[in-house]
Design a protein around this nucleic acid. Structure first.
Lengths: 336, 336
DNA sequence: TTGAAAGCGCTAACAT
DNA sequence: ATGTTAGCGCTTTCAA
């Protein structure tokens, strides 16, 4: 069933059908009705490939996301799609998997679908000019930036919290509660991403406070998932090094860590304080509720979309925007 | 940058470029190399609309999902996409939002993208023949079936747990632990979906056990989300009707309910037992861990994909497959 | 091994 | 108000 078939069975030309389909004026009421009825009757839906092909200008924006199962990103997605629609763009979700280069995937998508722009959710912080040059369309890094790369400020846009400062603040919070032996649960100290940044801030806060960091309290999980975090915390506990607090670089990791602590007979916060980062919805409901540094989701999303739309529509150039991650006091931290 | 440009700058015809692009034989090594180099150099990626348009046979399968933020569905997605790829199909994720008719959305998608088939994740259980007839391509309902509709068994396929039985089993489990005053937290008793089915089973178990159900223990949240479940449980508690156990029709609702109980000074399972359904990853990590009826995710996904592929490739007709939801013992239930 | 050309379904410019 | 027609970028006969 094509536009031609509809035209045929209505005794009109394809252009008339096309006009009806696209709400163009200059169609008689009579013709419009006839066509509309035929469309309904045959459940006709125009082929999207043909449509996209013929209009050289697409209004699509790619949303590149690594793993949809990540609650934090999953929560950002719906409002982001809505805002893009409101701005007159069509969001195209593109999920990539571990082992895939997000920039390459984004570049392919941009070309294959003639995208107007890209928002990248989560990725590595060490892009080079050659990599991003391949994108050819405006792009915004959302929730990460280029801390370890060599991009000039006018070569990329990003909207993030200050990850280093967040790690710093988390350590400060625990220090101010009297903790000195603080474990840190992270992805990797060399992941060139948020984990590494938060670790750097964390470490700096300890140093400034004159608290030596015991390497035995460093737990690298080599993933952000609950299972890895749980097992790594178990190992940390089994090793027997004493600590009174733990900083996890994400909420899900923190929740898994609390479970591991619990199973080792250490309740939170009585026997160990725990702090997370992200502020996913779940952290309000766990027992104990989690003290966490909340990423300002709404602002993050709004700013990312606004920045991209500005870039696409030629209002201003590339910019890096840093938002504040505020601590939300839960029940997982106690004063020593 | 199009295939024509590449052809031009290589001094070959578009067909040669196309052949290289599609790994067709009958291209001289020399030409192939030249074209490949040009493609690399220009970061050329063929336009997907043009590609899809020209081949009347697509190998795409639509995955229609209501709300990506739902952990249970989000967990099913990655393996489902992988299995489809393994079977030689391209998954196309289509997210719909509350208020959208999933069948209509699916039908549009199927036509617009010339899909080979559809897997629908979550939806209403009361489809009519007229609605499904519009789909025109094979489809499989995943995690729900047609309990309230009038489809003949040869008119649709589905892969689900027995929701009614699961509600029944959940009630039995609590009854066997000595509970008699059991609250139920659900979406709605008339949602024509899993909530209603589980409620029916739950109620039947109570009846058979000669335990009258107190309507004051029915908590309809009119949503499956944590916030609604939390508030509704608060109200239930505020009303003051006594109960020693609570059955929540989903894990996320159960977790929110436990929070509400906790805040009312009732700890789980000491003061109230709680049972959920789904078996999302998180339930192993909460404190207390949740006793829940686990949907066999892997099997659900495998069976749904296999069924769809069979239908598409003409191996066998429509079928409804019912899998078993086994209870996983957590720490949220105690013997009275 | 290669190229020319038809055509996938649609939109839009142009003609009537 | 309506129809005719030229592509959009690609794949695929068919001919050379």
């Amino acid at each position: 069933m094509t536009i031609k078939d509809i035209a045929l069975c209505c005794g009109v030309s394809v252009s008339t059908v096309s006009r009806v389909l696209n709400n163009h004026p200059n169609v008689s009421e009579k013709a419009r009705e006839k066509v509309l009825r035929a469309i309904q009757e045959h459940h006709f839906v125009p082929n999207s490939s043909a449509r996209d092909l013929v209009k050289l200008e697409s209004d699509s924006v790619g949303l590149v996301l690594r793993g949809i199962a990540n609650s934090f990103f999953a929560e950002l997605l719906p409002p982001m799609e809505q805002l893009l629609l409101d701005a007159g763009y069509t969001p195209i979700l593109h999920q990539i998997h571990s082992g895939t280069d997000e920039l390459e995937a984004a570049a392919r998508l941009a070309r294959a679908k003639r995208l107007k722009g890209l928002i990248l959710l989560g990725g590595s912080n060490d892009y080079s000019r050659e990599q991003t040059a391949a994108l050819k369309v405006p792009f915004v890094l959302c929730t990460y930036t280029n801390s370890f790369g060599n991009l000039a400020p006018n070569q990329y846009s990003s909207v993030t919290i200050d990850d280093r400062k967040t790690g710093y603040d988390a350590a400060r919070l625990l220090l101010e509660h009297g903790h000195r032996r603080i474990a840190i649960l992270l992805d990797s100290v060399r992941d060139r991403s948020v984990s590494e940044l938060r670790w750097m801030g964390f470490r700096q806060a300890l140093e400034e406070a004159g608290v030596p960091f015991d390497p035995a309290l460093l737990a690298e999980s080599v993933s952000f998932d609950m299972d890895g975090a749980y097992r790594r915390t178990k190992e940390l506990l089994a090793a027997g090094t004493a600590f009174t607090a733990l900083f996890a670089v994400s909420d899900t990791m923190a929740i898994a860590a609390i479970r591991a602590l619990h199973e080792a007979g250490r309740s939170v916060p009585a026997d160990c304080s725990v702090v997370g980062v992200d502020g996913i919805a779940l952290t309000r409901y766990t027992i104990p509720s989690l003290t966490t540094f909340v990423q300002p989701q709404k602002e993050l999303v709004c700013t990312a979309v606004r920045t991209l739309v500005d870039l696409i529509e030629g209002r201003g150039g590339n910019r890096q925007i840093v938002l504040d991650a505020a601590p939300r006091r839960g029940q997982s931290v106690r004063q020593l």
